[in-house]
Lab assay of single mutants.
Amino acid sequence: VKVFRALYTFEPRTPDELYFEEGDIIYITDMSDTNWWKGTSKGRTGLIPSNYVAEQ
């Protein structure tokens, strides 16, 4: 598990995607895809765009 911080707010387009706000901490559990990672924030899990976060 790696810890990342959201650089921007992300509004999901599908139920599989995770909503998060700029500054949120996201725990990444799967980075197997280059563009979409699986992450958890505020008790919810979903896909996030990798270019919206920076490693802490």
Rank of each mutant, 00 (worst) to 15 (best):
K38S: 09
L18N: 01
N51W: 15
L7K: 09
F10A: 11
T34C: 13
S41H: 12
L18A: 02
A54E: 14
V53T: 02
F20W: 01
Y19N: 07
L18K: 01
K38G: 05
K2A: 09
L7M: 10
W37S: 00
S50L: 03
R44D: 04
G46I: 02
I28M: 08
A54Q: 13
T45H: 12
E11G: 05
V53M: 11
R5C: 10
Y8S: 07
Y27M: 11
T45D: 07
Y19M: 08
G23L: 03
V3W: 12
T45C: 10
G39S: 01
W37G: 01
L47G: 02
A54R: 13
I26D: 00
N51T: 12
Y27A: 06
E21R: 10
E21P: 01
T40H: 14
T45M: 10
W37F: 10
I28D: 00
M31Y: 07
R13I: 08
V53S: 01
E22N: 05
L47K: 10
D33L: 08
S32T: 14
M31L: 06
P15A: 13
L7S: 04
I26L: 13
D33R: 06
T40C: 15
F4T: 04
V53H: 02
E22M: 13
P12N: 06
Y27V: 11
S50A: 14
G43I: 02
Y19D: 07
N35Q: 14
M31Q: 13
D16T: 09
D33A: 07
K2V: 10
I28V: 14
N35E: 13
Y52M: 12
K42W: 06
D30S: 06
T34F: 10
R44L: 08
P15S: 12
G43T: 05
R44G: 08
G23S: 03
I48A: 03
G39Q: 01
D30M: 06
R13Y: 08
T34Q: 14
S41K: 05
K42C: 11
F20H: 00
D16K: 11
I48R: 03
G46K: 01
T34L: 14
I25T: 10
D16R: 09
F10S: 13
F10I: 04
T9C: 08
V3K: 11
F20G: 01
P49L: 07
P12T: 05
T14D: 09
I48N: 00
R44S: 07
R44E: 06
A54C: 13
D24W: 14
E21M: 09
G43E: 05
E17I: 04
Y52A: 14
T40A: 08
G23M: 03
L7I: 11
M31N: 07
D16W: 13
D16L: 13
G46S: 00
P49M: 06
M31A: 07
K42D: 10
G23P: 00
P49Q: 05
V3T: 11
L18M: 11
T14G: 13
G39R: 01
V53F: 07
R5Y: 15
R5A: 06
E11T: 14
G43P: 01
P49H: 06
N51E: 11
K38W: 15
V1T: 12
T14R: 13
A6P: 01
T14K: 12
T40E: 12
T29S: 12
S41N: 12
S32D: 08
S32A: 09
I28S: 00
P15N: 10
T29A: 06
Q56V: 15
F4S: 02
Y19P: 13
G43D: 06
K42F: 08
W37T: 00
S50W: 07
E21T: 08
F4Y: 14
T14P: 02
F10M: 05
I25K: 04
K38I: 15
T34S: 14
Y8P: 00
A54K: 13
W37L: 05
L47Y: 12
L47P: 01
V3E: 09
M31R: 08
N35D: 13
I26S: 00
D16A: 13
Y8E: 06
Y19S: 12
K42G: 14
K38H: 12
D30H: 06
E22A: 15
K42I: 03
R5L: 12
F10Q: 05
Y52K: 05
R5M: 12
G39F: 02
D16E: 14
R44K: 13
S41G: 04
E22D: 05
D24R: 01
K2D: 03
T34A: 15
P49K: 06
S32H: 09
Y8L: 10
V3N: 04
E17K: 08
R13P: 04
S50Q: 06
K38Y: 15
A54L: 13
L18P: 00
L18R: 00
M31G: 04
I28K: 00
R13V: 08
I26M: 05
T29H: 14
I25F: 09
K42Q: 13
K38D: 02
Y27S: 06
I28W: 00
V1C: 15
I25Q: 05
W37Q: 00
E55Y: 11
D24N: 04
E17F: 11
D30Q: 06
G43A: 04
G39T: 02
T29E: 09
K38T: 14
I48Y: 01
A6F: 02
G39W: 03
P15Q: 11
G43K: 04
I28F: 01
S32V: 10
E11V: 15
G23T: 02
I26Y: 01
Q56D: 14
I25S: 05
Y52Q: 05
T45L: 07
D24K: 00
P12R: 05
N51Q: 11
T45F: 14
P15R: 10
I28N: 00
T29G: 05
S41Y: 09
E17Q: 15
V3L: 12
F20M: 09
R44T: 06
D33I: 05
T9N: 11
T14S: 14
E55P: 14
V3R: 11
M31C: 13
F4C: 09
D30T: 03
Y52G: 07
S32R: 10
E22F: 08
F10T: 07
Q56A: 15
T29C: 13
S32L: 10
T9K: 11
Y19I: 03
P49W: 05
G43V: 02
Q56W: 15
P12G: 07
Y19F: 13
G46V: 02
T45K: 09
E17W: 07
F10R: 12
F10W: 15
W36S: 02
N35T: 13
P12E: 02
P12V: 05
A6V: 03
T34N: 13
D33N: 11
M31V: 07
T9Q: 06
N35A: 13
D33Q: 08
Y27R: 06
Y27K: 05
P15C: 09
F20T: 02
P49E: 03
V3A: 11
S50H: 07
E17M: 12
E17G: 11
E55C: 10
V1A: 13
Y19G: 15
I48H: 00
R44A: 08
R13L: 10
A6Y: 03
G46A: 02
K2W: 14
I28C: 02
D33E: 07
N51H: 14
G46W: 03
V53L: 14
F4A: 05
L18W: 01
R5G: 02
T14N: 14
P49V: 02
Y19C: 09
G39E: 01
P15D: 13
V1H: 12
K38Q: 11
K42L: 07
L47W: 14
K38V: 15
E22I: 13
A54N: 06
R5I: 15
Q56R: 09
T9L: 06
Y8Q: 10
I26C: 03
V53K: 02
N51M: 11
T40Y: 15
Y52R: 04
S41M: 12
D16F: 13
E21F: 07
M31P: 04
P12F: 06
A6M: 02
L47I: 09
Y52I: 07
T40P: 02
T34H: 13
P12H: 03
G43Y: 03
R13A: 11
I48G: 01
D16Q: 12
G46N: 01
D16P: 04
S41E: 02
L47M: 12
